[in-house]
Amino acid sequence: MICLYCHSNIQEEPDIITLFKKPSPLCLVCRELLTEWRTGLRCDFCHRLMEEDWHKCMDCDFLKRRFTPPAKITCLLEYNQTVKMLFHRYKFMGDYALSEVLAELLDIDLQGYDAVIPIPLSENRFRERGYNQTATVLEQKRIVYKEALVTTDRARQSELSKVQRVNGENPFSLLNGSGLRGQRLLLVDDIYTTGMTVHHALEKLYTISPASVDVLTFSKA
C-alpha cells in the first residue's frame, strides 16, 4: 500500500486492529500535515481566520446583508500549503486518486440529513476535468447524493477577484427540487473562499422551502 499523497510506502505494524482494518490511503506524516490548523482567532460561523482588530467576520457580515445564511457550516480541512497542493493536483492535474484521501478525511455524521447535494459542475468544466471533484469524494465514501442543481458556464472562481465574484449573476438553477420540500439538506462544496458559490446555491435551494440547509466544505481558504 502506498500513500496517495506522497507515494511513499506505508508500513503498518500488523496487530489485531490493523489486520482487519481497511488500509488507509494516507501515511501518518501526510495526515498530520493535511489536518494541521493555523492558530489564531477564527469566525465561529465560517471558520475564517480573523484579523486582530475585527469584532466580527467581515465575510459573513457582508454575505448576511445579501443572502440568507445556512444553519451551519462544517469545514473539514484548513487551506494550508499542503491542502492547497492537494487541491491543485486533484482539480487541475487530474490526480483522481486524491478523492480517496479526501474521503478518508471526511468524517461527518449524516444521521440528521435527508438529502446530500453536491455543488454541480458545468458541462464544459466536466468535459475538461473528467469528473466532478465534490461528487467523486461522496462516491468514494459511498454516500448517496442527489443532483438537485445545475450550473451554466462561467469563469473559474479562483481566477476572479472578490468584487467580480460578488457582482456575478447567480450561475445555478434548480434541476429537480421536487421532493426536497420540508427536508433537511446538506450542501457540499470543495473549497469555501468568500462563500459566494455556496450562497448562490443556497439562494436557489431556499426557493423550494426545505426544513434546513447545512453546508459542508472540504477546505476553508
Binding site: G94, D95, N132
Partner: peptide, 15 residues
C-alpha cells in the same frame, strides 16, 4: 471515468 464511461489508468509518479 464518469465522462468516458470506461476504466482509466494513470501514472502517479509523474502526475
Amino acid at each position: 471515468s464518469p465522462l468516458h464511461e470506461r476504466k482509466v489508468s494513470y501514472c502517479l509518479k509523474c502526475v
